[in-house]
Amino acid sequence: MKRTISILAIIWAFFCTFIILIIFIKGPQFTRLFGKLPSMIISPVYAGGDLNYVVEGDSLKIAVNKPVFEALIGESAKGFVQITFSGTGNLPQLIEQEIDYDKDLKPDFKLKINTIENKTEYLSISPNAGPLIVSSKVHDDWVVRIKVRNKKK
């Protein structure tokens, strides 16, 4: 028995060299395979949440995401909503918009963004809309995150 275990252990130790080689040589294939696992998505806390609706104007496209109330268990009382402004050509120098993030047909907050000077003025209209978290250029777009209250909590 001892001898068998010893031989099996040596065989396993021998294969360790190949395991390391396979992991790195077949890395891209493994990445594709494991990338399909249900947990392999970036948390909405970082990715910004799922798309809620899009408003398309002449020079501006506005993507309003669903609010993110991510918590370890259930939902948190406070979260954020992400709005992405994309220009149909270049991003306009001045963006002035009222946003209805919860689709109740009433504006929740107002944004005035100077994309060249990197200045954002924010006005909360609805009591559910809290302060501005971040307003930043992201590649060719402009992304804004606003703190919002979870109505269910």
Binding site: G35, S39, M40, I41, I42, S43, P44, V45, Y46, E70
Partner: peptide, 10 residues
């Protein structure tokens, strides 16, 4: 949460 808590490339 079935997600990865890191702002990187998946």
């Amino acid at each position: 949460t079935k997600t990865i808590i890191f702002p990187g490339n998946i």
